[in-house]
C-alpha cells in the first residue's frame, strides 16, 4: 500500500477518477485490517461484519472529509470512525431485546446493594459504606429529575451502554453524558451540604478498585 500524506489522502479521496478509486481501496484495506485487530478478542465478530462496518464508515468518512482537523494521521482519524461505527452497531445488536423500562424496574427495587454482603471491607468501612449508600439512594430519589434518575439507573447501576440508553430516551450519547454529569454534580452538592467529607467518603469506597 502506498503511503500518503494527510493532504494526499484528502485530495485523492475528494478528487475524480482512478486516483480516488485507488485511495478508497487502500483506505478500505487499512480499516479492515485495523478493525480486525481491534476485534480480535471478539469471537462474535466475523470478517463479514468487519467489512460491513468499514463500508458504513467509509460513507461517513467521505461525507465528512471537511471535519478532519489534521491533528492526527488521516488514517487514525478514519480508523476512529470505523471503530465508532462498529461499536455502535455491536451495542445496538447486543441490547436490541432489552427494554429500558424493564431494566429500570428490575434495578430500581433492588438498590439494596450486594455491598452489604461484601466480605472485603472492615466492619467500620461497612458501616460507612452502608450509611453513604442509603444517603445516595435517598438523594437520587429526592434530587434528580425523572430522566436523570432513569439514565443513572440504566447506565451506572444496570451497566447498559450510554449510547443505547440515549437511543431509547430519544437523545444522543453526548447529551446523555451531560445529563448524568449534571445529576452527579447535584448529588455531590447534596452530599456536601449534608456534611459528608468527600475525601473521607471516597476513602471508604477505595478498599479495592473493582
Amino acid at each position: 500500500m502506498r503511503e500518503r500524506t494527510n493532504q494526499e489522502w484528502l485530495a485523492e479521496l475528494a478528487g475524480p477518477g482512478p486516483e480516488r478509486e485507488e485511495a478508497l481501496a487502500d483506505l478500505r484495506a487499512r480499516l479492515v485490517r485495523g478493525l480486525g485487530y481491534a476485534m480480535a478478542d471478539r469471537p462474535d465478530v466475523t470478517e463479514a461484519h468487519i467489512e460491513g462496518f468499514v463500508q458504513e464508515a467509509l460513507l461517513k468518512i467521505l461525507d465528512n472529509l471537511d471535519a478532519f482537523r489534521g491533528e492526527s494521521h488521516f488514517t487514525t482519524w478514519a480508523q476512529k470512525i470505523a471503530v465508532h461505527e462498529a461499536f455502535t452497531e455491536l451495542r445496538r445488536k447486543r441490547w436490541e431485546n432489552v427494554s429500558l423500562d424493564d431494566l429500570i424496574d428490575r434495578y430500581e427495587g433492588d438498590f439494596t446493594p450486594a455491598i452489604l454482603t461484601d466480605p472485603d471491607p472492615s466492619p467500620e468501612q461497612q458501616v460507612t459504606q452502608g450509611a453513604l449508600l442509603r444517603m445516595v439512594k435517598r438523594f437520587i430519589a429526592e434530587e434528580l429529575t425523572e430522566r436523570q434518575r432513569q439514565a443513572m439507573l440504566a447506565v451506572v447501576f444496570a451497566g447498559m451502554p450510554t449510547e443505547e440508553v440515549a437511543r431509547r430516551m430519544h437523545t444522543n450519547r453526548n447529551a446523555l453524558y451531560k445529563l448524568m454529569h449534571d445529576a452527579r454534580q447535584r448529588l455531590q452538592r447534596r452530599m456536601r451540604d449534608a456534611g459528608v467529607s468527600l475525601e473521607e467518603a471516597l476513602a471508604a469506597f477505595e478498599s479495592d478498585s473493582r
Binding site: Y107, A114, T117, M152, V156, Q188, R210
Partner: peptide, 19 residues
C-alpha cells in the same frame, strides 16, 4: 442484585465529579 463493584464505582463517580 446490583453488583457491589458497580455500586462502588457509581458512588466513587459521584464523589469525584468535577465541574
Amino acid at each position: 442484585m446490583i453488583e457491589s463493584s458497580r455500586i462502588k464505582r457509581a458512588v466513587r463517580s459521584i464523589l469525584t465529579t468535577r465541574p
